[in-house]
Design a protein around this nucleic acid. Structure first.
Lengths: 366, 366
DNA sequence: CTGTTAGCGCATTCAC
DNA sequence: GTGAATGCGCTAACAG
């Protein structure tokens, strides 16, 4: 029903080919006077090129596929924002898929595969895989992606990958976690516990490994490690679990003097510090601690990972490892859209020491 | 380069049409034995249907366009998640666009128009407009959308619209704001200030109007109204501005006794309550207050709007008006994808009274 | 039930 | 520089 190029051409009194040449770029440049007539006709009829038809004719779609885990998670939405930015700059549209939603036909674990297949079906020019995949690399996924790459598609994955021909954006998850743990140790903390994310998630594992190695370097071991989903609720539950496992005792509520009567684990030593594999989960952990009567950082300290922008207003401010999420999205999109770029690109962040781990805020004027 | 249906058909020794019928749904159902052969051939060759070609032939793309303002903003990302959910359930892919990013060619204010044109170009089956548009309804936008609708496209807009044929998802912004203000007044608060969002944003205006009417109903007027962007930074700056304008005095830091030596505005009355047009901005406001030595809710109270999930772990917990963001996204997608649904659909939320406005948390076990 | 044919809307060879 | 013809990969009438 929409007006098509043929109609514009007829209206302008030129051939289909000519109309095509003036409206949608071409090597050959029609005469200016005739071009003006065509443009006028197009404008008048409200012509809008059919991208599907163009895609079929040109075999390039101007589409980039982005698969994240949960777009509502600030980690992914910030990343997505970065992707969007460079995509729009290079005139691409982004197709979004999430691996956390029910996919009707596909089994839960196959969400990523389903998303990739859909993108391949739409012949996206590139696919960005940001949903921290499960360790179990699906051979079907690999096969589909390799075929896609061989057909000229570009794929960028967040983290390492075995997919031949794929570009990868390496993130300093392990090194960052190690650096964070080390910084905390230098600050005098001696007792740690770890709240790990889902065991099967690559990102989560790398961070936990980093925490553990950081502790090992100082001859320390975590008092406990509890796994849970990368959500606020996951952090809350894991923390409650931790409290029970470690037999943590909340200080006697003697708030009038403000003096604390007991600290874990050593009455005289530094408080326990909980290293959490991501910020959102750390937030849940803090809520659990508060609910159970622990003060942060006096009774228990907490450190997260990511430095989610939205959480920077939190009080106490969260000690964490800052990842340039937005920039990561941009780099990923650049790798996807600019073939000449070399991979892998390595992304590092920085340790950010704040109140939740006993550091005093540098009274940021914002 | 990818394998096409013709090849699968040849491999299976059947005609193109038959292959099409078994692989991609059809009314006619081929015999089971022949169907199996085709499926086997497709599997072996790694056939993936070309959605572009299908779209061209069927004139329906299986695409939904979603335009938000800033996908990194939890308000929009949560909404987007809801959209994604029903889209995936009805086997649709979502095309995402943001109006906050530079659009190269298009002027800043034209981002929404550019996004809509792109979606129309891709012949999305429906377009969901969630970027709370500026009040100045662009006639070009309206024209494009109406043509789109007349060509069979469905459009859903968040809020009221003058676009003929568009469905709309009405949100109780004004009524909610009014209810929130009223609840606070009933609680005994007598002095209010307002932190409004961008003046040109519909959503922002409706909320401010609601706040004002709520106050008026109790014969009150806001002590001041400050505008600012819907961001944490916007809330921070607006609050600093407010502090100066109102000459707010922070209590003398006499923390040993915990006694406050001064309160604004009346030493004996209830503290000032700042009504903020959205949660993210309210967060920035709280940070500003804290930075300037005010305790929440003792010295100043704060109320937001939206009840962003990620912010529920904040302390003090934010009093706000809860909007079912995720569900709103779902409803919008349903309106977009299920033609029989009637519009407008009205969404209401609920007042949530929490610590930031002096209410005690019901020790939520989460 | 299966095969043949004709477009879907547009870019792009080719001749002119 | 411009117009006519061919094909992109697939679906949907049509026949058989």
């Amino acid at each position: 029903m929409p007006v098509k190029l043929t109609e514009v051409a007829r209206e302008a009194g030129v051939s289909l080919a000519t109309a095509s040449r003036v409206l949608n770029g071409s090597a050959r440049t029609p005469a200016e006077d005739i071009a003006k007539r065509v443009r006028a006709a197009a404008e008048e009829l409200g012509y809008v090129a059919n991208a599907q038809a163009q895609a079929l004719a040109k075999s390039t779609t101007g589409l980039v596929g982005l698969v994240v885990h949960d777009i509502a998670d600030p980690y992914f939405s910030t990343f997505a924002h970065g992707v969007q930015k460079v995509a729009s700059l290079s005139h691409h549209q982004v197709l979004l898929a999430g691996t956390d939603l029910p996919s009707e036909d596909a089994p839960p674990g196959d969400a990523e595969l389903a998303a990739v297949r859909a993108f391949i079906s739409y012949r996206t020019d590139a696919i960005i895989l940001a949903a921290s995949r499960v360790t179990d690399e699906d051979p079907r996924l690999a096969a589909a992606l390799e075929r896609y790459i061989n057909s000229g598609g570009r794929v960028v994955v967040l983290g390492a990958t075995k997919i031949a021909g794929a570009s990868s954006l390496m993130v300093a998850n392990k090194a960052g976690a190690m650096a964070l743990a080390t910084a905390l140790i230098e600050h005098g903390t001696t007792h740690f516990a770890i709240l790990a994310g889902p065991a099967e998630r690559n990102t989560a594992r790398a961070r936990v490994d980093g925490f553990v190695e950081g502790l090992q370097a100082a001859s320390l071991v975590p008092l406990a490690t509890v796994h849970g989903p990368f959500t606020s609720r996951g952090g809350y539950d894991a923390t409650v679990d931790l409290i029970h496992r470690l037999g943590l005792l909340a200080p006697t509520p003697n708030t009038t003097t403000g003096a604390d009567t007991s600290r874990f684990p050593s009455p005289s030593g530094s408080p326990l510090c909980i290293l959490v594999a991501n910020d959102v989960m750390a937030l849940g952990a803090m809520t659990a601690l508060r609910t159970h009567g622990f003060r942060i950082p006096d009774d228990v300290q907490v450190a997260g990972f990511d430095d989610i922008p939205t959480l920077r207003d939190h009080s106490p401010a969260l000690t964490t490892y800052r990842l340039p999420l937005e920039q990561m999205g941009q780099r990923a999109a650049e790798l996807a859209l600019e073939p000449q770029l070399r991979s892998p690109v390595t992304i590092t962040g920085e340790v950010v020491l704040r109140e939740s781990a006993g550091f005093t805020a540098p009274t940021t004027g914002k």
